[in-house]
């Protein structure tokens, strides 16, 4: 009995230590933003990498998500003659939930893994130690630009994903389900509120921060050579994905609970 309790306690303590370590890492990195030097070129490079190079994969995902959403909601709503709600369902689902969540999950897989691998390789090849010996704070130089880039780039990416997703729904709605294009667009616009879009963009900013944080954190603390870097990459993607889903619920609750 005592052994069981101590094992549970050890797991709980390890969890708390991990959360504490992550929070400390985030605070230390953000504290670096309080004073110069800043690295605008590094931030710009990360914005390009996270945003521009993720556009094809995010765009394709959003397009097909919007198309499937239109098809599925039409099939379901036709059972009780509510087909006219398809456009509204597509736009609300994309802006509030699917745009931010699916785009963020795709970016977590693409960018979070790459960040963990790059920083992890720098760790195991002593490049991070080299930064320190060259009077450069690794958190300021490596982590902060990625956090900033994740925070500002994901909302833009998600806004584009929203538009492409709604367009995907429009394509299926007008060409396959034979909605009138003008009526579909009117229906899309009619029930959409500013808050629907804004809440999605706020979620995107939070998710972008989390993706960059998990990529940097796991990469920064990787050890043991190639295997350690591989584990860091896996942990970065898995933990970012789980946190995205958890925070998505928390933010939805915060925005829309009455």
């Amino acid at each position: 009995m005592t052994e069981t309790l101590s094992a549970i306690g050890a797991v709980f303590l390890a969890f708390l230590a991990a959360v504490g370590g992550l929070a400390r890492f985030a605070v230390q990195a953000l504290a670096a933003a309080a004073s110069p030097p800043y690295f605008p070129r590094l931030i710009a490079r990360q914005v390009l990498y996270i945003g521009y190079y993720s556009l094809p994969v995010v765009g394709l995902t959003a397009l097909f998500t919007g198309m499937v959403l239109a098809l599925q909601s039409y099939t379901g709503f036709s059972r009780f003659n509510a087909q006219s709600a398809v456009a509204t369902v597509v736009v609300l689902s994309m802006t509030r939930e699917l745009g931010p969540v699916i785009a963020s999950l795709m970016v977590a897989g693409r960018v979070g893994a790459a960040m963990a691998a790059e920083i992890g390789t720098m760790r195991v090849t002593e490049q991070i130690d080299a930064l320190t010996t060259l009077s450069t704070d690794p958190l300021r130089y490596l982590v902060l630009p990625r956090l900033i880039a994740g925070l500002v780039t994901l909302p833009v990416l998600v806004l584009i994903a929203d538009i492409i997703g709604v367009f995907g729904g429009f394509l299926v709605g007008t060409y396959k389900l034979e909605f009138n294009p003008v009526a579909y667009l009117t229906q899309t616009e009619q029930y959409l509120e500013t808050m629907d879009v804004v809440s999605g963009l706020v979620k995107a900013a939070v998710f972008g921060f989390l993706i960059a944080l998990m990529g940097c954190y796991h990469g920064y603390h990787s050890r043991g050579g190639a295997e350690g870097v591989g584990q860091a990459t896996t942990h970065a993607v898995v933990s970012a994905s789980i946190l995205i889903l958890i925070f998505n619920y928390a933010l939805t609750q915060a925005f829309f609970s009455r």
Binding site: T121, M122, T125, E126, Q127, D129, A130
Partner: peptide, 8 residues
Amino acid sequence: FQGSALFD
């Protein structure tokens, strides 16, 4: 550094 640790 032992492995040079040059920035790639």
